[in-house]
Design a protein around this nucleic acid. Structure first.
Lengths: 229, 229
DNA sequence: AACCGTTCGGGTACGGTGTTCCCAGAGCGG
DNA sequence: CCGCTCTGGGAACACCGTACCCGAACGGTT
């Protein structure tokens, strides 16, 4: 009979205990690096070196796991300090930070438009944004709509921005290969001559990068909001 | 030996021939009615009364099927007639029509933010929208950005609008059940008193319906765009 | 009329998925 | 020492997308 070993020196294979937090972090790592389609329970378990079904001791199901991931991302940056009263500038900064988060976690934009986010970190952030919007108008209803519209714009903008990158990633093409294959198709359309304004855009117009387009829309939107109030 | 039958009277079980178009239509029917998650090759085949793998004679794979579905939806409404020169009003109408399409096909918003849409119907619609934007500015680059920003806003707006409905649908709750369960949670958060602005929104602010919020943002955005030009 | 190449429909099977059910073992209070 | 609760994990189920193959039927040529 082997001598009893002290509990805390028992060999647990060097692995820290399985917790909700570790599962969420591992899942986020996978989704960030390999895309949301590569996120599976088996994959997460492999990442953590555990059995697949052990995850279900800490997580209700995959859907809830994703919800936890979403909220965790909303909590990863500290809330900005209270500003000086320039609500347009502050809202712009909030929008930019939100955009950075969405770009850092390419799966987020899609998930955020699948279920309403209601986690604690989401609420905390929403509270902060509302406090800035309150500087713009005393009307609580309007302040709420301002926040909604802003979030809406950022979400839509980043979604579009990510669509291209995602298409490239899943087809496994390099940047150049993809540009070429699309370019060939677009050239055909242009040559057909049936879409004069589309042609004008392809030939005549520059194609500003994603950030420029984002800032253009953001600026317009904030300008429009100050008009409307 | 049976007598040879004329080709065109042969019994094909009364089923029309399998074509790409019929497959796309069946898939769209399923996705509209049961959600994008219920769309599977086997389900489509069952809807058409054929074998699952027969679909692959006409369709490269599921991804391409969805791309065809997206383009088909963009083609289902006729393009609006050329208008009278009021570009703000025309762009607003285009945005409203786009919103209606996205709402009629709840899977669309999500897919549109997964791959850049490049089908013929998408291009035709884009050409038309660009022609309206050209009335606002002679600068082709700016016109392109206007169209992008507008589409971006509509996409983001509808995504948010659908998220709630989708969450309700997949949890199988009725409208009331869902409102109650969320309400209970929100009440807890409010009671904690930690988020004063969030509370103000919940208690003090009305919650305008989705269309009102959409129109508010659309109006602001168009106002901002005329400022900027 | 006989052959032949091509196309279409579809059955089988493979490797994946989320999740449920059950069991083994460990820690702990009595 | 007995039982109770909690954690980890294996087996199995019902799906999924789709590659591979085969039979049947068509159009065109000999």
């Amino acid at each position: 009979m082997p001598p009893p070993t002290l509990v805390w020196m028992r060999d647990r294979g060097g692995r820290p205990a399985l917790t909700e937090e570790r599962i969420v972090r591992a899942a986020t790592r996978i989704a960030d690096a390999e895309g949301i389609d590569a996120l599976s329970m088996r994959r997460v378990a492999a990442e953590l070196g555990t059995g697949t079904t052990s995850l279900y001791r800490h997580i209700v199901g995959k859907d809830e796991l994703i919800e936890l991931m979403v909220d965790a991302v909303y909590g990863e940056d500290p809330l900005p300090e209270p500003g000086d009263g320039d609500w347009r500038g502050e809202l712009a900064d909030i929008a930019r930070a939100f955009r950075r988060s969405l770009l850092a976690h390419p799966w987020l934009a899609q998930q955020a438009s699948r279920r309403p986010a209601l986690g604690p970190n989401v609420i905390a952030r929403s509270d902060h944004t509302l406090s800035v919007a309150a500087k713009a108008t005393p009307d609580a209803t309007k302040a709420g709509m301002i926040v909604d519209v802003l979030n809406t714009y950022v979400l839509g903008s980043v979604s579009g921005e990510l669509a291209e990158a995602e298409a490239r990633r899943t087809t496994g093409m390099t940047e150049d290969q993809w540009r070429n294959s699309v370019g060939e198709y677009v050239a055909q359309v242009v040559e057909s001559g049936r879409y004069p304004h589309f042609n004008r855009r392809v030939i005549e117009a520059g194609d500003p990068d994603a950030e420029t387009r984002f800032e253009f829309g953001l600026f317009s939107l904030l300008a429009g909001l100050s008009d409307v109030l």
